[in-house]
Design a binder for these strands. Structure first.
Lengths: 235, 235
DNA sequence: CGAGGGTCAAGAGCACTGCTCTCGAAAACG
DNA sequence: CGTTTTCGAGAGCAGTGCTCTTGACCCTCG
């Protein structure tokens, strides 16, 4: 009885996955608001109403795709970092940032889904925050390791944190990197927003006509940001 | 005959404007893909097909709204900068960046329209590039004035441009700020992407749970970036 | 073994969308 | 005044997300 029950559940899980896969395929060509449940069902040889047994609404399907995308991006960043000598802090930093950019370029609509304008009326459920922070955590991990190795030298000038900001950064530090001093973590936040700002600008066409292709600009900015947070130069 | 001809054209221009206004009003509550031509027409007391005489497609209406948004944002940035003593370079820098952030927060869906994920299948026409660059030009103007006053001291370390990047930056410089050396303009580009990355993260909910509200973080980052590009400290 | 309950795909249908086409009225022009 | 252009109204097409009902299947328990 257990076996048969799992057989059913396995079929269900399988179909859920096939739906997501087909949806992702359509996403890749038509973009987020071109995603049509009917088209997905049609491609899978079923009728649209049947699909609602697996994802109760279009938003639920999108949420599943969003989580998948965050996870794929996070995994790409983490494995890229793991492929570098762990003592080569700048190398790890570069690996993560270029992995993010390359994943984004290879999956532009999935990237737009998670880092573009949120679908109005749609609120990200709790399930998304953990996978969403993987990239940030990977970057912070590099900085933390470098800090513990005594290798962090933030670029001048120093800029003390205001009192309220210091408090915010402290609670953030307590959660992810208690060793790091506030000003360093604040610099990491700035570098983090810079990274995604740059990738978004490139993907969303804001850089066209200026620095396009932007490989060189990206590499330059990444190193500038590594200096900024205080990572040591080369290995 | 000329007067009557313009009478018709004036009515046409007026209606075009009313359509855009109503569309913008709907945009503010439902977001970009909630914008419905039929709803706009309904609200204006006309039938949907009549609207197509003014904007031949939904994309054309969106394009008009995009241009309006770029212009409004650019005007906000420019007038904020003009309200500051022109010799107070850092003050102008702060004025522009906070004006951008405040406009974005006050018009989040219009901001999302221009700096969020582009509508798939939609290509920005030529008409958008000029208004789109107003903010960037305002920032560069500050930097250029500061440079000509001999007041620019980029934060160390120096980081030479690679050859291809230098070429790209040179052609960009030739178009907007011939006096500025390449490395300085490259830093400006980085600060520019950082600014919009930060605003987008705040508006799109990526900062929630970390630094939210982000007024303090924003101000901190803006000053860091002013240091980074080399603007002098206070007046 | 055979009945009852749960699971599922299918189909019809609702309200909505962007967009096209045709038609009649009104305005502009010669 | 007649003609041509401009414009709004209406019907209609193909598509969307989503709901509800119907009938088939399978699993479990009496």
């Amino acid at each position: 009885m257990n076996a048969s029950r799992t057989a059913r559940e396995r079929a269900r899980a399988e179909l859920s996955r096939e739906i997501r896969d087909e949806a992702r395929r359509q996403l890749a060509v038509t973009g987020a608001d071109g995603l049509s449940l009917r088209a997905v069902a049609r491609e899978l040889g079923m009728v649209s109403s049947a699909l609602y047994r697996y994802y109760p609404s279009r938003d639920d399907l999108l949420t599943a795709l969003i989580i998948d995308a965050y996870d794929a991006l996070g995994a790409a960043a983490e494995s890229a970092a793991a492929a570098v000598d762990s003592a080569d802090f700048r190398g790890r930093w570069r690996a993560i940032t270029t992995a993010v950019r390359e994943w984004a370029r290879a999956h532009r609509y999935e990237y737009a889904l998670i880092y573009g304008s949120p679908v109005p009326g749609y609120r990200a459920p709790e399930d998304t925050v953990a996978p969403a922070s993987r990239v940030a955590l990977a970057l912070v991990a590099v900085l933390r390791d470098a800090w513990q190795a005594g290798a962090v030298r933030p670029a001048p000038p120093e800029r003390p944190l205001s009192e309220p900001l210091s408090a915010q950064v402290q609670t953030l530090a307590a959660a992810i990197a208690p060793e790091l001093p506030g000003p360093v973590l604040a610099r990491a936040l700035i570098a983090w927003t810079q990274l995604f700002g740059m990738v978004s600008f490139e993907l969303f066409g804001q850089l066209v006509g200026d620095v396009d292709p932007s490989d060189e600009f990206f590499a330059h900015a990444v190193d500038h940001m590594a200096d900024f947070v205080g990572l040591p130069a080369e290995t």
